[in-house]
């Protein structure tokens, strides 16, 4: 498992390529999240991403461990950016490999769903209408809760 928190941008395709070269890999599934330029009626200038160093890494490790307990997966990498992000910038990448595709698909979705509610990151939008801390989305909480049916 690799967990990286960084300010710099990154190439998700490089990680996918590295994963595909390992033994026992029949499937690599990735999720990449980007900064949208519009948020409701506002035009975004940029976003500030803050996190809780120490807890962030622990929370992400725990999410990956939970995923591993449910699905037979090989490798996992999570890369999350912090600091100033511009519209269309990549924010997050989750890459999961497995022998068979179903495990990697499910584990990747599980990891991003829990990252959204359990890993301590906060987004602030700076737009033409001023500055605002992004509110949590009910949809994210529902998506996480739906996974409870697994246990």
């Amino acid at each position: 498992m690799t967990i990286i928190i960084q300010e710099d941008s990154f190439s998700i395709s490089k990680t996918i390529l590295k994963f595909s070269e390992k033994d026992n890999v029949g499937a690599v599934v990735s999720f990449s999240g980007y900064v949208r330029e519009f948020s409701k009626e506002k035009q975004l200038k940029y976003m500030e991403l803050e996190h809780y160093p120490g807890m962030t890494e622990k929370a992400l490790e725990s999410i990956v461990q939970k995923a591993k307990s449910h699905w037979d997966i090989e490798q996992t990498t999570i890369i999350h950016r912090v600091g100033k992000l511009l519209p269309k910038d990549i924010i997050v990448g989750v890459i999961v490999s497995s022998r068979h595709r179903s495990n990697a698909f499910k584990a990747c979705e599980f990891i991003i769903d829990f990252l959204k509610t359990d890993a301590p990151f906060w987004k602030k939008e700076i737009s033409d209408k001023g500055e605002v801390w992004v509110a949590e989305r009910q949809e994210d909480i529902i998506k996480k809760t739906n996974w409870n049916k697994l246990d």
Partner: peptide, 10 residues
Amino acid sequence: LAIFPPITGG
């Protein structure tokens, strides 16, 4: 002890 608003990453 850390106190914060709901998480909004990803």
